[in-house]
Amino acid sequence: MKVKKRTLLLIAGIVWLIAGFNVARLGILSFGLVEKIWYLYALSILIFIIFGTMFYKMSEKHTKRIIAYEEKRPFWNFFDLKSYLIMAFMMTMGIGLRASGKIPDFFIAFFYTGLGLALSLAGIIFIRNYISYRK
């Protein structure tokens, strides 16, 4: 169950890409349910920029932490405890708000599309770091 630190970068990339794809898919599907208004696309870009910046910094921080490991680590060590708690909170809130029906489709359309693409960007960064990693 222990893997090389380089492999942790790949695992992180795959996890973030899968999460990003699924979140963006929900947003894109919601765009099919709402009137196509130009500013919803602009809001998606804004959300992407905000979260993309945050996830870029996070992926660089986690890459540095992973590279600093001296030996093989359990495969779940691509995140630290704080990151797992944040992820659990975000997933719980997202699923809960969507399931409540209190969030309109237009919000899910722009917010989830931008957020999902930003999550995917983090996955791409981790995979780039995996590919370019040298001992």
Rank of each mutant, 00 (worst) to 15 (best):
I11A: 06
K36E: 11
N77Y: 14
E71V: 05
K4F: 03
A24M: 09
G20R: 08
F107R: 01
G20A: 05
I45F: 14
F48D: 03
I28W: 08
S59F: 09
R98F: 05
M58L: 15
L115T: 00
I108C: 06
S83F: 11
I66G: 10
F48P: 12
S120I: 01
T53A: 10
T92E: 02
F21D: 02
E60S: 04
K102A: 03
M1A: 14
G101S: 04
E71R: 10
V23H: 15
S120W: 09
K61N: 12
L40C: 06
S44E: 05
R134G: 04
N22M: 14
Y41V: 14
V23P: 01
W76C: 02
I37H: 11
L46V: 15
L9P: 07
W16D: 09
E70T: 13
F110P: 06
A88I: 08
L17I: 12
F126A: 03
R6S: 14
L40K: 11
V15W: 06
I49G: 04
V23D: 09
L43M: 15
H62G: 01
I18A: 09
A12S: 09
R98P: 00
V3F: 14
K57S: 08
L9A: 06
S100T: 10
M1K: 10
D105S: 12
L117R: 02
V3H: 03
R6H: 10
I28F: 15
S120T: 13
G27E: 00
R128Y: 15
F126H: 14
I103E: 09
I86S: 04
G101T: 10
S59M: 13
G27Q: 03
W38S: 12
F107P: 06
S44H: 04
R128I: 08
K5L: 07
G96M: 04
A88W: 09
E60H: 14
F21N: 05
V15E: 07
S30K: 10
G96K: 05
L46E: 12
A88F: 15
A42R: 02
W76Q: 11
I47L: 07
T63L: 05
I18D: 02
Y56L: 11
Y112K: 00
Y84R: 04
M54D: 01
R65L: 08
V3D: 06
Y56H: 14
R6G: 07
W38A: 14
R65E: 08
I11R: 07
L97K: 02
N129E: 15
N129F: 03
R25T: 00
F78G: 04
K61C: 01
I103L: 13
A99K: 13
S30M: 04
F89W: 11
A109S: 07
Y69W: 04
I14D: 03
A99P: 06
I125A: 00
Y133E: 11
I131K: 07
I14F: 11
I125Y: 13
E35L: 10
K61V: 08
A88M: 02
I28Y: 14
F48E: 13
L46Y: 07
S132I: 11
K82N: 11
L8P: 14
M93L: 15
A12H: 04
T63P: 05
L81W: 10
I108V: 15
S30P: 11
G27C: 00
W16I: 02
Y84L: 08
A19G: 05
G52H: 11
K2R: 08
W16H: 05
